[in-house]
Design a binder for these strands. Structure first.
Length: 218
DNA sequence: GGCCAGGACACCA
DNA sequence: TGGTGTCATGGC
């Protein structure tokens, strides 16, 4: 928890920190549907590109599962082009929207993690993102930022897989949705500022520049 | 023009 | 089972 409080003390009053809330514009119906769209569109892409794609979807009226299904693949591909991998992501979005067209574009609240993972091109990170932010379920997200951070802090001896890092955090944190969201948001905030592949260590609150055990991976 | 960015999956040895 | 290639774009 010392890691959490160090980050919290440093970023709590940073204007760029979302405070653990997924950024939602309110242009989609229902708002949680936007979280699900963002979780898929953000795969291997900068968030700025996702915002462009969501904006283009909203402009074209692709704001609900029903509208997306009836618009056809070409319209979705055009709208989400800026997020990259647009053909594959369109297939995933279509599959999800067809599945959930009659439940307002949302999965059942009690959907299991493995049921999400059974959907094409939804892996552990995307599934946890949907569960934590759209369905308010306590599933820790061990994204690339998180895995890079724990490696640089020396918690793992080599670049770790997704599941060990997820279990690592869930092992010492209380299973609270708000805590998981805040912790994840802090890690993202920190990574964007200091812990990229080519890190900017000056001013880093974790002083990783002095403690990093794996400069080669940094 | 090359590299990087919040993944997932198919294929092959 | 682990490594590698593929999907694709925008920004620096």
């Amino acid at each position: 928890m010392r890691l959490f409080h160090t980050l919290k003390d440093f970023y709590e009053f940073d204007s760029g920190w979302p405070g653990g809330d997924w950024p939602v514009t309110g242009r989609f119906d229902p708002p949680r549907f936007e979280v699900i769209l963002g979780s898929i569109l953000t795969q291997n892409t900068r968030w700025e590109n996702v915002e462009m794609a969501l904006g283009a979807m909203a402009e074209r009226g692709l704001t609900s599962a029903e509208r997306i299904v009836h618009s056809g693949n070409a319209a979705v591909e055009t709208a989400i082009r800026s997020s990259g991998f647009f053909r594959r992501k369109t297939e995933t979005l279509m599959e999800i929207c067809r599945l959930w067209e009659y439940t307002m574009g949302l999965p059942p609240l009690d959907i299991r993690r493995d049921e999400l993972l059974a959907i094409n091109r939804i892996g552990p990170e995307t599934a946890d993102s949907i569960l934590l932010y759209a369905l308010s379920r306590p599933e820790f997200i061990a994204d690339a930022y998180t895995r890079r951070l724990v490696l640089r802090l020396g918690f793992f001896a080599s670049p770790p897989d997704y599941q060990p890092v997820k279990l690592f955090f869930e092992g010492f944190l209380d299973r609270e949705v708000s805590l998981f969201r805040k912790f994840h948001a802090l890690i993202v905030q920190h990574a964007r500022k200091y812990c990229r592949r080519n890190p900017v260590c000056t001013g880093c609150p974790l002083q990783i520049s002095q403690e990093c055990l794996f400069p080669a991976e940094c």
